[in-house]
Design a protein around this nucleic acid. Structure first.
Lengths: 142, 142
DNA sequence: TTGTTGTAGTTAACGCGTTAATTACACGAC
DNA sequence: GTCGTGTAATTAACGCGTTAACTACAACAA
């Protein structure tokens, strides 16, 4: 059965939901001149340590061409460092730099406030339920 | 509380879920050289009749600058027509053209198959539940 | 060593998202 | 009428998503 209106269309609903949530985080990121994708890359590097580009792209949910651009931008601002892997001249290893760690630390409190507010307004139980459904949808379709 | 891993991060989960779902529709749209956003615009025009640009952008969930580009592309392919509103030289009225309607009709069966498959795999009950949660999240945050 | 195949990363081209600035027009105050 | 304000749409600038093509290197076979 086709969705009879856009509110009940799954792609639309997912789009709007994401817009609504990101609308809360965007001002914070913009204030520090970091894009959403750059922020995801920094977080992965912060949490997972030095990582090769392919794994980084995968974990940050960024496509390889985008990652190339993001690396260039973050390296230019000294947020990360980029080195060739020993033993394999094709691979590239990315590492977070002090300035990058500092940015993560600076934004974490604000992130927590926003996330807590969303959880409070939406309800802890329902948030867990939503995350479960999304996880299941992702696993089922991918 | 901050999400401890990206799978339980709401923005990430919404992103992945949307990617997973759109991955099913994308080949269909690509085969007809229509982008996802162009398709949304066409659907709105098909369902709602002649509409002014602002309302169209709103209903198709497209920002005004994007709509300008989309209109240009769709008009170039004779999928829609673009006219100034009578009585107000600023407003623009968009109307679907025969070629546009034909595309909608041509793709609808395939859309239905894909949507049904998703619903079958994910479960009707859970899909409704997911849509309810998303709708609530959207209303709560926007 | 040379050639083939495969993989990691980059580049290119095009479209959309986002924000800000700008143009064109409407409307009311004066 | 003209000026100022507000609104609709467009344009501009930059970054990312997407696909395809390309480069550089590795691995292996002959």
């Amino acid at each position: 059965m086709l969705p009879e209106n856009t509110r009940r269309s799954l792609p639309m609903a997912l789009l709007h939901a994401r817009e609504a949530v990101m609308g809360r985080f965007r001002p914070m990121l913009a204030a520090h001149d970091v894009t959403e994708q750059q922020w995801r890359v920094l977080r992965v590097l912060s949490e997972a340590g030095p990582v090769e580009a392919t794994e980084l792209a995968d974990r940050a949910s960024v496509l390889p061409p985008s990652l190339t651009r993001i690396i260039k931008a973050l390296e230019g601002r000294k947020f990360i460092t980029r080195n060739k892997a020993e033993g394999d001249g094709r691979r590239v290893v990315l590492t977070i730099a002090p300035a990058g760690s500092a940015l993560i630390d600076a934004l974490s409190p604000e992130r927590r406030v926003i996330y807590d507010d969303i959880e409070k307004r939406f309800g802890h139980e329902r948030l867990e339920q939503l995350l479960d459904l999304l996880e299941s949808l992702i696993d089922g379709e991918s």
